[in-house]
Structures are given as C-alpha cells and as structure tokens.
Design a protein around this nucleic acid. Sequence first.
DNA 1: CCAAAAACATGAATTCTTCTCATGTTGACG
DNA 2: CGTCAACATGAGAAGAATTCATGTTTTTGG
Lengths: 307, 307
Amino acid sequence: MFLDLRHLRALLAIHEQGNLSQAASTLHVTQSALSHQLRALENHFDTPLFFRRSRPLRWTPAGQQLLELARHIVPEVERAESALRSTGDGQQGRLHMAVECHSCFEWLMPTLDRYRPEWPQVELDLSMGFSFHPLPALYRGDVDLVITSDPEADLGGLTYVPLFRYEMLLAVARASPLATRDWITPADLADQTLITYPVCPERLDIFSRFLGPAGVEPAQRRTAELTVMLVQLVANNRGVAALPNWALREYQDQASIHGLALGESGLWSTLYAAVRNEDRGKAYVDAFIRLARDRTAETLPGVLPAR
Amino acid sequence: MFLDLRHLRALLAIHEQGNLSQAASTLHVTQSALSHQLRALENHFDTPLFFRRSRPLRWTPAGQQLLELARHIVPEVERAESALRSTGDGQQGRLHMAVECHSCFEWLMPTLDRYRPEWPQVELDLSMGFSFHPLPALYRGDVDLVITSDPEADLGGLTYVPLFRYEMLLAVARASPLATRDWITPADLADQTLITYPVCPERLDIFSRFLGPAGVEPAQRRTAELTVMLVQLVANNRGVAALPNWALREYQDQASIHGLALGESGLWSTLYAAVRNEDRGKAYVDAFIRLARDRTAETLPGVLPAR
DNA sequence: CCAAAAACATGAATTCTTCTCATGTTGACG
DNA sequence: CGTCAACATGAGAAGAATTCATGTTTTTGG
C-alpha cells in the first residue's frame, strides 16, 4: 500500500484551493513538497492525476477517482481522531454495563437518567447478563462496568468499589403460614417453592450464603425474568422469593406480600461496581460510580452506606 | 492529523493474527517496529489501545474504536488503489462520451453493445450534450470522448480522429412538391418549415454549411428531441428536416418520406471522435475508436470510410 | 513450581522518507 | 513579448520509521 492519508488530504486541499501553491500553504508545507508528492503518486500509479501544463487545474478521471476517495475517507478519519482525543482526557468514552443482580434494574435506570445529561458524550449501554458471565466479559473488555454483589475470585486487574449495603428479605404471601414469623431458618424453606431469576444457583445469594451452607434445598424451584412477575407469583402464594429490601418495599403496598429476615441477624449484602483498574480514575467512570453510590444511598429506602 | 494508514493496517493485522509478533511478520516488519508504532499511537492519543501485560491480547474500547475505523477504511483504500493501478495499464478507466450529432445515437448504441463485453472494466456513460457544450467539457475532463462533425477551433490538447463520412439529406414528405426534385438549393427552403434537434443553429450543419453561407433563413423552425418524432412530423408534411443518410434510410420504408441531396454535389460531412491527447494511446480508448470506425463503416448503409 | 520459551518492550543506531531551499520552466495576461 | 504567478526539479537537510541488540514479562510443559 503506497497511498497515504497525507496524499488524500493534499488532494482535498488542492481541490478546495484550486491550485498547488495555495493548497500547500493551507497544509503548511512548501509548494515544492506538494509537487513532489503528486509526482510520486502519479509515478507510482503510472497515470496522471491532473492535466499538466494547464491552468486552471484540470483533474483527470483517475484524479477525480482519488479525490472521491479522499472525500469519503478523510472526514471519517478526522471524526475518529477527535473522538479518540476526547477519550484520552476522560470527557468521552464507552460505559457498557452489565448487572449480575437482576433487581438492580430498578434503581439503575433512574441513576442512568441522571447521568446521561451530565455526560452526553459517553456511550451508554446496559445488559442483564442472561447469556454471559459479566465479570469475565469485563476482563475481556466487552463491558466496562459490572454491578455485582460478589467480589469473586480476582481475575486480576479488576477493582471493586462498594456502593451500598442492603438486606435480602424473603418475600412471602401475607396468607402464607410463614408470614407470622419474625425471621426464617434455612430449614423453613425445605418444603417451599423458591422462585428466582433464571440464573444458576451459585449466582444467587440465597443459595450461596443461606441454603447452601446449611445443606438445604427448597422443595421446588421455578423462575421468573421480571421482578413484577416474581412478586405476582409470591402474592398468589405460588412460592416464596428472595428480594432486596428496597425492591420488595416498592411492591409491598400494592401486592399482599410480606418481607421476612433470612436468619436471625438478617442476610446483608454489599453491592459493588467492578471496573478494570485502567478505567479507575477516568472522569466519566468515577462520576458514574459516585453518582450510583451517593444518590442511591440517599433515595433508596432501606439501604445503608457501604462499609 | 497523526493517524496514518500504516497504523490502521497494523491494527487490522494484529486483530487477525491475535498477537504482535505474527502480525509483524505478515506486515513484513519486525516485532519491534510494531511495538514502537503502537506505543506512538497510544502516546499521541493519551489512551491505551490494548490492556498491557495480558495475553491473549485484549482491546480497550478505544482500541476497538480504531479497529472499527480500520475495518471501514483499509478495504476502501485498497479497492481504490487497485482500480487506479489498472487505470495505469489501460485495462480499466472511464469513458464518458458526449455526442454533438443527435442522430448518432442510432449507430452508437449498437457499437457500445459490442464494446461493453470486451471491456467490462471500463465505466461507460453517454450524454447528449443538450445542456452543455461537449468540447469544452472534454477539455475540462468532464467527459472523455466526444462524437462531433466539427473539428472546431483547437482548444489545444485535443485530438480529432476521423471515423467515417456520410451525406446529409433533406427529408421531405413524398407528398411534398419538393419530393420530385433531384437536389435542393438553399433558396428552396425559404418558404419551408425546418424541423431540427433542439440545439443552437451554429451546431447544425444545415445552417452552418448550407443555409448560412447562402444567407437564407427557413420560413419557420420547430424542434423535436427524438429522431422518430422528427420523421413523423416530416411524413405528415409539417416540415422538412436534415438527416444523415443512414438515419433516414432506416425510416424511409416505414414512413412515406424521401431524401434529397443538399446542393448539386450533396452535403458531405465527416464524423470525428475527439479525445484528449493524453488519452490517445490508452488501450480502452483506442479500442473504442477502432470499433466505432471499422464496424460502423461496414454495417451502416451509405457511409464511406473517412478521408 | 520451575525452567524454558514465547511474546512483548525499549534505547540507540541506521536507513529511508519527506521536506525545504534554490533555481529553472512554463503558461497567462496585459 | 515581457512580466508575473504558478509549477517542476535536483540536492541536501531534517525527520520519521525501522532494525538490532537486549531486557522484561507472561505462558507453558515437565
């Protein structure tokens, strides 16, 4: 490949200015340099780009062809360059997020709505991680931030920033016999139907931190993708479900459900934002984390500041 | 503009090969060169393109952005380069034509149909020159070949290649009183309606070489864009028209029209292909001219070889 | 877990490219 | 037909990219 962006920009300048001399000065080179450049191009492709010894300048078909190419390519490259430049100073970037915790959707959306107008240059995306494991994806660079309650085996190069603490509650129908209890033991669930989000048990706190250690399995399991569906099923006494306290609180009034502590002292979790070490310190990343932590602790009922 | 096609190609190779060393060898440079290149890019934009000290290679969002750019741009440039290369050796090029002589359409189309399959790489176009003057357009580079019967005031840099000779005839209705004549004088047209293509009189042989020199004007003028329309009008005795002998011959059988010589010895013209000097010698140009000259002289009734 | 290998990084020297300078040619215009 | 502006060209200077030699890090296979 002989052709160079320098050549294309030169052609563009020549077309805009109408002659070599002026084009050269807008490009901040001498007329001689331009002349050499063109000669080299023409020699290389063995075809003239202009009709020589003729003024005003006239382009050959080959020249027009190259000019057309320049018109396509140069602006595209310039756009990419300026985008990259502002990536460097942290004003712009990509913030593709994934949530491991499904009910996080509920508080994340309002946070995103506040973030977006303040950082309009940031390319936002949010995925639920149904079909991939968020943390490896973060490591690979497919996503840039993961909301998780499980600072898992360090893949290396990841930073976990605590956002806030919340309590996992067991949602039961008010009609359920369990509803009268103050708190629940793992054994209480041995004859219950447990309704969860459709992910593997290891990624659900109620399994990994409550039932698992006690060696208990629920009588049945079924899944629901959306929190509303899950709440509906519980209200109809079709089963019980573990929900963060803030999520449960939203539905408590409308549906006849009740929240019970898991264990005597309750099952508390901390939610983290995981980012790659390299991204820590980028203005738009830190701004998001700060917003998520502070705003959420203020506005979500029932959550406590992290630590 | 710092970014260079070399950088984009390097990124593409790295993506294809998955590591610097192999990418370097496909690019025929050392691994060191690639490493320097990447370092320079990252320094310039002040943002990493890869996650360092990690294998397999992982791209940062910024890197992915640049890679995306490379994917768009590099193939486009490569296409343009190879097109240009084959322009150089005359196998490919642009052959935009304009005809000054309107009835030329009739013989040009079959010629083009023969030319096209033999030179599939040549970009063909044909315009009738209603709205511009073909020869200046040829000079400017807007078109590449002009069919004209008037090797006019040399603009410099144009070559006129004679194609063939033909006779201009006056088409009259068989019902017309003129139809009995062997040949026509300019004065005979003083009380006639003359039907022409819609171009200025100077570009019509019957004015510039027959009526003009004799100082005669037809009683009326009207125009028709298509030869069939023109023939129709003549057949209905709504006027007379000057037509090349080959064009007239085609309609003579169907419509009741008759062709008369203009002047005792007839009005003979030579048709030329005008090209820029630079294009003379290009394989695809010369091939077209040869085809137009030879095939037409053989197949068109009534035309004579040039000279 | 260690050693060997593969991949990557880096500084200095070299090679190559591209630019400028000085000057010669050519074309346009009065 | 002479003058001016635009373009061309060769030689040398400036600068950029590459290589070479070598050091560091990561992976892999025993």
